[in-house]
Design a protein around this nucleic acid. Structure first.
Length: 256
DNA sequence: ATGGTGGCCCGGCCA
């Protein structure tokens, strides 16, 4: 099974690149973030023609998350596990080929002194609670998406440039470790060196200067770690005409 | 260099 995640930064703007990428790389499951679409604009039919079932949660110009799958997509859950307090359209999950797959878009946080930084930490804590509520111990789980956290200093182009910045702070990294504490592993790490980034700012030539971060993660349960055969991020998807500012992350698993 | 670019959609927010 090939599992991928991609912050597409507007699926409306990105659909040509997304369909091209799907046809080239043939993911079995693709999680997307920042679709920036309402549900009635989501191109469900176009994905169906490519062989995918889909689940989307979005309400307009902000956020929006989706999962498309050609290995089954059942028991869709929009928002957090058992609560009705999430209106952010930042988390959707579904059962795909025996794995509970989450597509998540963690709040950015903006800056350490911003009120949205506390929102980000609370959101990550709620994600852990959701895993505890929804996923029985020992079940097969993959949490995929844009975490807006670089797990280690090797995941940013220059740690000195990020002192006092969001995405690298100790509380954010601790909150990410709490999510992983459910029993999840940052599987991409096992197959790639540090400095393999997934996001580059559009501005100031950051992509061409190598000024990136690794903030798009695939966190998987032990059964999937054992089955993982490789992982890569497709830097080519960040090149060319109208790219997203994120590259897709792909993890391959042997059949169970 | 407190800018730069790109998405939403047209004034300003968000990343």
């Amino acid at each position: 099974m090939r599992l991928a995640t991609w912050n597409v930064n507007s699926l409306t703007a990105r659909m040509p690149r997304v369909t091209e990428w799907i046809e080239m790389h043939q993911p079995d499951v693709l999680c997307m973030q920042e679709t920036k679409q309402a549900d009635d604009k989501f191109p469900e039919q176009q994905f169906a023609e490519l062989g995918y079932e889909s689940a989307h949660d979005g309400d307009g110009r902000w956020n929006g998350v989706a999962i498309i799958s050609k290995v089954g997509l059942e028991a869709v859950n929009r928002g957090f596990g058992t609560s009705d307090d999430d209106h952010g359209r930042r988390i959707v999950s579904a059962e795909c080929a025996g794995t509970r797959v989450f597509s998540v878009y963690v709040p950015n946080g903006r800056s350490l002194d911003n009120e949205f930084y506390a929102v980000k930490l609370a959101w990550l804590a709620r994600l852990r609670t959701t895993l505890d509520e929804m996923c029985p111990p020992g079940s097969s789980v993959a949490v995929c998406g844009d975490f807006n956290v670089a797990p280690e200093d090797g995941d940013v182009w220059d740690p000195a440039a990020f002192v006092g910045a969001t995405h690298v702070s100790d509380p954010e990294r601790a909150a990410l470790r709490e999510v992983e504490g459910w029993g999840l592993d940052d599987v991409f790490r096992r197959f790639n060196d540090s400095g393999t980034f997934t996001w580059w700012d559009y501005r100031a030539g950051d992509f061409h200067q190598g000024r990136g971060m690794r903030i798009d993660l695939v966190l998987v349960s032990d059964d999937l770690v054992q089955r993982a055969t490789g992982a890569f991020r497709d830097r080519d998807a960040r090149k060319g005409q109208k790219p997203s500012d994120h590259a897709p992350v792909v993890v391959d698993f042997a059949d169970s």
